[in-house]
């Protein structure tokens, strides 16, 4: 695939990305209006309902301007990363998100690494030992993992390893890198249970499919050592399907982060989202949703680009299903 073709591809996708973000931002903005109940009451929160507070609120949210004008004003602020203030805490939404972002990112990256290492690892081992005890055990474990949602795994791990056996801390985030690493191990494992299972199944299937291919037999016949065959041909071709499911992995991780942060009472973006939903703190909801949406859209774009680069057989416009 030529460099120019790739560039065109990326540019086209960027345009789609921009359009998507506009649509998503419009929907996010409209969340305020979808909510039933008195808009003023929701925005006031705990503040008293007096003429002065209502006036201040109307000014702050431009409530007496037409809908589209309000959207425009809101979007202009949003682009500058200003999402207003939280109804519950009166702090800036950007500040709240910023305070919690590092924790969620740490947790997300930790889980992602676990997912890739163990998912691909187990998948490869399973494929190589196909039909044997190890394979059957791993396939069974993958089935268990797929069926165990992050919150069940979280509460179970919390109970066994933090309360019963006391190997890991049961709460808090810890200060300093290593300490945080230790504190976030149980949540990261709980998060990774489903994604490891998913990735290992796909890797196993892809590896098995690749092993049957003629060119592998041919390479073997040419006298290349098995190790070389394995690493240069099999792995690379087996990894491609993993990239195609990376969108699902990401969304699975995001869902898991929300559940795990609540299960372990971690002050991250996931628990912020849930709290905002429970208390109807619309400005915070808008900020977090937009952030998640941007992450998903950008990550999917990256995955597509990587896929294009890695697999020269795919041309723009064609999609392998």
């Amino acid at each position: 695939m030529s460099g120019r073709g790739l560039l065109v591809f990326v540019l086209r996708r960027l345009v789609v990305l921009a359009l998507l973000l506009i649509v998503i931002s419009f929907v996010t903005f409209s969340l305020l209006y979808i909510s039933p109940g008195n808009l003023i009451d929701i925005l006031l929160g705990a503040r008293p309902h007096t003429a002065a507070t209502v006036r201040a609120l109307t000014r702050e949210y431009h409530l007496n301007k037409p809908f589209l004008v309000q959207y425009w004003l809101w979007a202009r602020q949003a682009v500058q990363l200003r999402f207003g203030t939280s109804i519950q805490t009166s702090l800036s939404v950007t500040g709240e998100i910023g305070a919690r972002l590092p924790l969620t990112m740490f947790l997300g990256i930790y889980s992602f690494v676990l997912t890739m290492v163990f998912g691909i690892g187990f998948g490869v081992i399973s494929a190589l030992r196909r039909g044997g005890i190890v394979d059957r055990g791993l396939v069974g474990a993958a089935m268990l993992g797929l069926s165990t949602p992050a919150f069940v795994a979280g509460v179970a791990l919390l109970y066994v390893f933090a309360i019963k056996v006391r190997w890991f801390p049961a709460y808090g985030v810890g200060t300093g890198f290593l300490n945080e690493f230790w504190h976030l191990t149980l949540p990261a494992v709980a998060l990774a249970v489903t994604t490891v299972a998913y990735v290992s199944r796909h890797t196993r299937a892809a590896m098995i499919g690749t092993l049957d291919q003629d060119y592998v037999v041919f390479a073997r016949a040419r006298g290349l050592s098995s190790r070389r065959v394995l690493f240069t041909y099999l792995l690379r071709n087996a990894l491609i399907p993993v990239i195609t499911i990376s969108g699902v992995i990401l969304s699975s991780l995001i869902v898991g982060v929300v559940l795990v942060e609540v299960a372990f009472s971690l002050p991250g973006l996931g628990s912020l989202l849930v709290t905002a939903a429970t208390t109807k703190d619309i400005p915070v909801l808008q900020g977090v949703v937009l952030l998640f949406a941007v992450v998903i859209v950008v990550a999917n774009l990256l995955a597509d680009v990587i896929y294009m680069v890695v697999d020269p057989r795919i041309r723009v416009g064609e999609r392998a299903t």
Partner: peptide
């Protein structure tokens, strides 16, 4: 249809459910 599927396929459904619950009820 495939454009729509591609878009929807990798949406985190739980997050959307949470947002819907938080706004509509």
């Amino acid at each position: 249809i495939m454009r729509w599927v591609d878009f929807m396929w990798s949406l985190p459904s739980l997050v959307i459910l949470v947002v819907v619950a938080g706004t509509v009820g």
